[in-house]
Design a protein around this nucleic acid. Structure first.
Length: 507
RNA sequence: GGCGCCGUAGCCAAGUGGUAAGGCAGAGGUCUGCAAAACCUCCAUUAGUCGGUUCGAUUCCGACCGGCGCCUCCA
């Protein structure tokens, strides 16, 4: 069985067949860089990363586009508030996004177009829609897409016959009066003084203004796939569930009206939301957690990936401190095992290990082919780990079959982590007294950085080793305790090796 | 009002019309100067409730109870 994916368009799990065999064009909606991307955004990007990696692992030549929205109401408002240009406001957040993305081991897209770099393409697209009569200029000077000209509208969200919610009539905003139909959406917003103030306005044949929300995705996706794969239909378009309506619905309308094709994308995939302790993340609740928050808390990226992949992408996920702690622990165990497996490498696999490896490969493939069932894929890794440990305990060795199967799984999922580990030198008692002659206290140096803290931990690990050497076990245990209080665990190996492992961040 | 989702062990979470993966936590044991790691053993006869279909349902259908999402710029 090959890859099957849940397609929002059909509301079914469909078997995946790209337009052109062996090649996949993938467009994913990226972040709006008005602020740091939060962990909910990253849940979606992580699901898309899994999709991308699994497609590649399955042998597809993937062309992946992820946009960066650098002009919209929020970016403009934020720039104004700070009194800087749109560009100056947005650039640092674009860089921060890339840092966070890399930290979470998310592969960068092959193309990462920014909306402001594709204004010309948007203008061409909108101009074409105006010529075709599916778009019109409103009284306010903005350009709108006419739903009435596009009979297929509502195909994706199935909200075509929706009515305004009872009691919601007061929501009609001022620009509603400029539209012919309340459901029409804006393609080009006439420039306002606030836009001009931050450099968010461009000239166009149909008036000076800025892009509407949806137009960038259509313009950039079509431009790039036309250039790169010579097509005007995407194989897959993915994003968060909240984008189904209106964003993706509107993208389909404007794109298909423009290309005349039946589809803008043949497969539409949507990832569910992540909540924080049962609540949706929002400024109002003050519960926005960013990737950098987690990093500063000492959480490993592998743990974040594990936590997210332990729930299916179409299932809502609640982020809690307990869940994070459990994932951190499990991810570390996987990392420890990976090291052990690699260290015990030898020429060939024991039968037990090669059998377990084949099972891992098979279970992983079955799970991910089945609409990216990451929880099952991860479970296969744990099963292999348990089997592997037992085999290794029994004196067996790992070989290429076990290692390659494990690497396959870890390459796709990226859920292992190995925190800070200090190897205490073997042999005669090493002196680690710092050159500066400073003496170490029994608690880590205040305000110390990573290097200083490691030096401190190593110092005490050596003291403990010396105490052990003279059988002063009371002192050895006392040092074990003080290290543990600072978040370091001492592990004595059977072969006399000693490791000091960071088990938690000293607070 | 419209469209839709969820309810599985202390917590998180999968599969499946034939008697419940995996993770975290927990219990006992092996190993260890002590520990940690690892290993061995144990940890839901039970799936929100009540009905129905079926030889058989957690899995299908219905009702109810309880949580929740979307319905114009939020991943």
């Amino acid at each position: 069985m090959s890859l099957r994916l849940y397609n929002t368009l059909t509301r079914r799990v469909d078997s995946f067949e790209p337009l052109e065999p062996g090649r996949v064009s993938l467009y994913t909606c990226g972040p709006t860089v008005y602020n740091y991307a939060h962990i909910g955004n990253f849940r979606t990007f992580l699901f898309e990363d899994l999709l991308r990696r699994w497609l590649q692992t399955s042998g597809y030549d993937v062309f992946h586009i992820m946009n960066l929205t650098d002009v919209d109401d929020r970016t403009i408002a934020a720039a104004r508030e700070k009194g800087v240009s749109l560009r100056n406001h947005v650039d640092p957040f674009a860089r921060a996004f890339e840092e966070d993305r890399d930290w979470l081991r998310i592969l960068p897209a092959h193309e990462q177009p920014r909306a402001t770099e594709y204004i010309a393409a948007m203008i061409r697209l909108i101009g074409n829609l105006l010529e075709k009569g599916v778009a019109y200029r409103g009284e306010d000077g903005s350009v709108y897409f006419s739903i009435a000209q596009f009979p297929l509208y509502g195909r994706l969200s199935r909200l075509d016959r929706r009515e305004l919610r009872a009691g919601a009539s007061e929501r009609v905003s001022s620009d509603e009066y400029a539209k012919e139909d309340a459901r029409d959406f804006v393609l080009w917003k006439a420039a306002k003084p606030e836009d001009e103030a931050v450099g968010a306005a461009w000239d166009a044949p149909f008036g000076r203004g800025r892009p509407g929300w949806h137009i960038e995705c259509s313009a950039m996706a079509l431009e790039l796939i036309r250039k790169r794969v010579g097509s005007d239909v995407l194989d897959i378009h993915a994003g968060g569930v909240d984008l189904i309506f209106p964003h993706h619905e509107d993208e389909i309308a404007q794109s298909c009206a423009y290309t005349g094709r039946e589809h803008f994308a043949r497969y539409w995939l949507h990832g569910e939301f992540l909540n924080i302790r049962g609540e949706k993340m929002s400024k109002r609740f003050g519960n926005i957690t960013t990737a950098r928050d987690l990093r500063e808390d000492g959480v490993d990226p592998g743990a974040v990936r594990l936590l997210i992949f332990q729930t299916h992408y179409r299932q809502r996920l609640d982020l809690t401190d307990e869940g994070l702690a459990a994932a951190q622990r499990a991810s570390s165990r996987l990392g420890e095992f990976q090291k052990r497996l690699t260290d015990s490498r030898s020429g060939s696999d024991s039968p037990r290990l090669s059998e377990a490896a084949e099972r891992l490969r098979r279970d992983l493939t079955e799970a991910l082919d089945d609409d990216l069932n990451a929880p099952r894929a991860v479970a296969a890794m744990f099963t292999f780990m348990n089997e592997g440990h037992a085999a290794l305990d029994g004196g067996e060795r790992s070989g290429p079959i076990a290692l390659s199967a494990w690497e396959l799984a870890e390459d796709v999922l990226g859920v292992t982590s190995r925190g800070t580990v200090i190897n205490v030198p073997t042999g005669a008692a090493a002196s680690v007294a710092p050159e500066t002659g400073a003496t170490y206290g029994e608690t880590p140096p205040p305000g110390s950085n990573e290097e200083l803290e490691k030096a401190w931990a190593l110092h005490w690990a050596v003291q403990r080793k010396q105490a052990k050497g003279v059988r002063d076990y009371a002192e050895a245990d006392r040092i074990r305790t003080l290290l543990r209080d600072a978040g370091w665990e001492v592990r004595d190996g059977k072969d006399g090796s000693i490791e000091v492992v960071r088990v938690r961040r000293a607070s």
